[in-house]
Design a protein around this nucleic acid. Sequence first.
DNA 1: ATTGTCCCCTGCCCGC
DNA 2: TGCGGGCAGGGGACAA
Length: 279
Amino acid sequence: MPELPEVETVMRGMQIALQNGTIKEAIVRRHDLRWRIPADFSQTIKGRRIEGFRRRGKYILMRLSGGMSIIWHLGMSGRVLLDSPTEPLLHEHVVLILQDGKRCGYIDPRRFGMLDIVPTDREDTYPLLAGMGPEPLESDFTFKTLLVASKNRRMPIKPFLLDQKVVAGLGNIYVCEALFRAGIAPTMPACNLTAPKARKLAQAIRDVLEEAIEAGGSSLKDYVRPEGGLGYFQHAWRVYGQTGKPCSNCPGAPACSGVQQITQAGRSTFFCPQRQKNG
DNA sequence: ATTGTCCCCTGCCCGC
DNA sequence: TGCGGGCAGGGGACAA
């Protein structure tokens, strides 16, 4: 599920529901996620107030009183449930119980996600966050970011954009969608980016993420529920998962051979060969 | 250093 | 209806 827009949506939901609450108890039913949840996790966060939230790439940082932060990562299948029932749910590995009775559950069937604790003033040196590229919706992300990072990189642009060191928060869906909007073939060597192409790409990345956050926000209420899926943005996918269909820009056009699916670096890539050309 | 392959794990969907 | 194979929104570890 979670790329930047989904993580942003989840974080906003948590913020609304949990901010200023105090953690009465934390239940850890399974410690063996992508990395082990520390043995003293519950003890460390117990009694602390939830003071704020921040997102960095696909990570959520939950700031607690006393200078500690909980780092959340949802992996591939992670979800947050803001009204977790008393009965344990399947794959609900962690539950935070607040003093006012609210229960926040962390559900992750595949267990590719993680939860950890870090001192708030050391969030950015936490190994998984250190070295991460700029936030694509902040002002320090520009076409120059892409130009500089892609220099001498012969890797195809698609896996290049999945590298969190280049830009934070992009995943398989939004990389495909951004490349489509920018008219760039996913197979193009990253170093073939020109300034005009980089401008289009940076703008396409910002646009698609903002639109997706907007759409996720519109279904916020249902999003952070186990049965809540992808928000509404899935209906706006122009190429992702659209194999064989005419892409949205050439619907029914005789020349359009339809959206193609290829594999790059072990992941599916969707693109329109008609509209996306190598430089 | 850069790039590609494999793997972690469970669930779901498709074809036979 | 049942079963096996392939695939899934992430990303680290490793080999070449």
